[in-house]
């Protein structure tokens, strides 16, 4: 009888092991960038899973047709930074202050970077065009997006694409979608906006005071 009981326990254990190993399989459409840092970025593939591939701890390859959503839990006041290298195709789109549902209707702030220049749209409406900042294939460019309260800033290398205010609510998500192109994003970084980087303070003097305070500390 005891042998019989042990057999049942062993069977139950084996079944539980199988169930748990299957049930906790990682979702193939999710991965984490910057896993080994204090600021891991949760990424979700919104297209077919083969169209987006993590190639390093902070590098991701997005093929034509791929869409990748990145976020850090509860982080809306953020500083996003990455190097963009477009190896083939015509451009890339970034959706800021958007989410995986809203971006389909071009909701939020859209930054499009292509061979003709840089374009900023807000909820589908045109905001800014910069002809001089344009895509050159296999020539990496560093993109920065800072959002602080109602203000946001888009930087390409050292050039300001746009700095302005918006009424669009800030979200955790950054959604990246190449336009008929293959794009490699390297040194992807998403963190809190640093105190000294804040530009949403109430007045210039306040900012100066803050900087002074930081310097003194």
């Amino acid at each position: 009888m005891n042998k019989y009981k042990y057999k049942i326990y062993l069977q139950a254990l084996a079944m539980l092991t199988v169930l748990s190993s299957c049930a906790f399989l990682p979702s193939p459409d999710e991965f984490v960038l910057d896993k080994r840092t204090n600021s891991p970025i949760e990424c979700r593939i919104l297209s077919t899973i083969d169209s987006v591939e993590q190639i390093n701890d902070s590098e991701v390859l997005i093929s034509n047709g791929g869409i990748c959503a990145m976020k850090r839990e509860d982080l809306t006041q953020s500083h996003f930074m990455c190097n963009i290298n477009v190896s083939a195709g015509s451009g890339i789109r970034f959706y800021f202050r958007s989410d995986p549902i809203k971006y389909r209707q071009d909701g939020g702030i859209v930054y499009e970077f292509n061979e003709r220049g840089s374009f900023v749209f807000e909820n589908g409406g045109h905001v800014q065009t910069v002809d001089s900042i344009r895509l050159q294939r296999n020539f990496p460019i560093q993109l920065q997006f800072k959002q602080d309260g109602s203000k946001y800033l888009i930087l390409a290398d050292c050039d300001t694409v746009y700095q302005g205010t918006t009424t669009v609510a800030a979200t955790e998500f950054i959604i990246i979608k190449p336009i008929s192109s293959n794009v490699t994003l390297t040194r992807v970084h998403l963190d809190h906006i640093f105190e000294y980087d804040k530009f949403n303070v109430q007045s210039k003097s306040d900012k100066e005071q803050l900087l002074e305070k930081l310097r003194n500390n």
Binding site: T76, G149, A169
Partner: peptide, 9 residues
């Protein structure tokens, strides 16, 4: 759960 931060000035 999606978090939205609304700023009012």
């Amino acid at each position: 759960r999606d978090l939205y931060t609304i700023t009012e000035r």
